[in-house]
Simulated assay, not measured.
Amino acid sequence: MKPNREHAACAFSLPTSSGSYPLKRVLDCALGGMLFILCLPLMAGTAIVVWLSLGLPLFFTQARVGAGMRVFTVAKFRTMTDARGPDGALLPDQMRQTVATSLLRRLRFDETPQLLAVLAGDMSMVGPRPLPMATIASFGDLGRLRSLVAPGMTGWAQVNGNTLLSDEEKIALDLWYVAHASPWLDARILLLTLKILVIGERINQGQLKVAKDFLLGHTCGQQPRMKMQ
C-alpha cells in the first residue's frame, strides 16, 4: 500500500546523527556469540518442546527487511499451528498456540535462532523489530527511516509496551531509537528486556509521550497503514 497522497510532499527528517554507532557491530558479535553458545542447551530444549507440541517443522521462516531495506530471512521456533476457520482464514494467534508454545513466546525462547542472524550481520541485538517488506513499504518515508539501522532481537518499542502498543506508537518509539542509538541506550534496553521477561509487558507512558512528541517534531503526520507483524 502507498502512503496517502496528502503526505507525499511532506518533509520528513531525523537528526543527522541517525544510524548505528561505530562499535555496534563489534558488540553484536561479542554478545551474540556468547549468548548463542550459552543458549545451545536452551535451543535444544525448545526444539524438543516444539516437536512434542506441534511436530515438524520446528522452524518458522519469513523474509524480513534489514538495514538499508535489504531483505533477509528470519527464523524462529514455530509456536503456532496452521489451524483455520470455516472460511479458510487462519484462526487468531492465541487459538493456534498450545500452553507450552505460549510460554515459549512469553519468555521469547522462540526467538533464540535469530542469534545466528545477529552473527551474520542481518540483525542486531538491539533495534526495531524486523518486519515484512509490504509492511515497511506501507509506512512510506517512516519505513525507510526506520530501516536506517539493523532490526534487533529486542528494541525500544519492545521494552516500552510491545504488543500493548498501537502501530503508530510502535513506529514513534522505533524512530526515536534510530535517532538516539548509543551503547548506553542499547545497554539500557537489554536490561529492560530482562525485566520484561520477569514482570511482563507494561506501557511506559512517559517514554511513549517523548517518542510521540519527537515524531510530531519531524513529520507532518504520516501514519502507519498496516498492522506490524
Rank of each mutant, 00 (worst) to 15 (best):
L38I: 14
G127R: 02
G152D: 01
L142N: 01
V71Q: 13
T61F: 07
K227G: 06
L194E: 07
G68F: 09
T154C: 10
M69G: 11
L56Y: 09
I196T: 15
L175A: 06
A172R: 01
G221Q: 09
A172C: 10
L165P: 04
Q222A: 14
D93E: 13
L119E: 08
G88S: 05
Q205T: 12
A181Q: 14
A134I: 02
A89W: 07
V50M: 06
D141Q: 15
Q97S: 12
I199F: 08
C29T: 09
L35S: 08
P183N: 06
I203A: 04
H180P: 03
D82I: 15
L31W: 06
V99R: 15
K24I: 03
D122N: 14
L191D: 10
G155W: 05
R146I: 05
D167V: 08
K2L: 14
L197C: 02
F36W: 08
V126S: 03
D93S: 14
L194Y: 08
W176D: 05
M34A: 15
L197Q: 07
H7T: 14
P151I: 07
G152R: 01
L58I: 10
Q114L: 03
C29Q: 12
C220S: 11
G155N: 00
S182H: 04
A47F: 03
K209S: 13
I37F: 10
W51L: 14
N162V: 04
G121F: 08
S138P: 05
M133S: 11
Q94I: 12
L14I: 06
P224T: 06
G45H: 06
A211N: 01
I203W: 00
L185Q: 09
G66S: 08
P92E: 08
D93N: 12
F36Y: 04
A67T: 03
H180F: 06
F36V: 01
V178F: 07
L23R: 00
I136C: 00
S20N: 04
H218Y: 13
V65K: 03
S20E: 14
I196Q: 13
H7D: 14
K76A: 07
M43W: 02
I136R: 01
A75T: 15
F59D: 07
V65H: 01
G221L: 09
T73W: 10
A30R: 03
D110H: 07
G127T: 03
N162G: 02
T193S: 14
A120T: 10
M43D: 01
A150P: 00
S124T: 02
E168C: 07
N4T: 10
T81W: 11
E168K: 11
P86F: 05
T46H: 00
L197S: 04
A11T: 15
F77N: 07
R202F: 01
V118A: 02
L52I: 09
Q222P: 11
F12H: 09
A8P: 11
K209I: 00
D174M: 03
R78E: 04
E6S: 14
W51S: 09
G45E: 01
M123N: 05
A63E: 15
A172Q: 02
K195A: 13
C39R: 04
S182V: 06
C220M: 12
K76V: 11
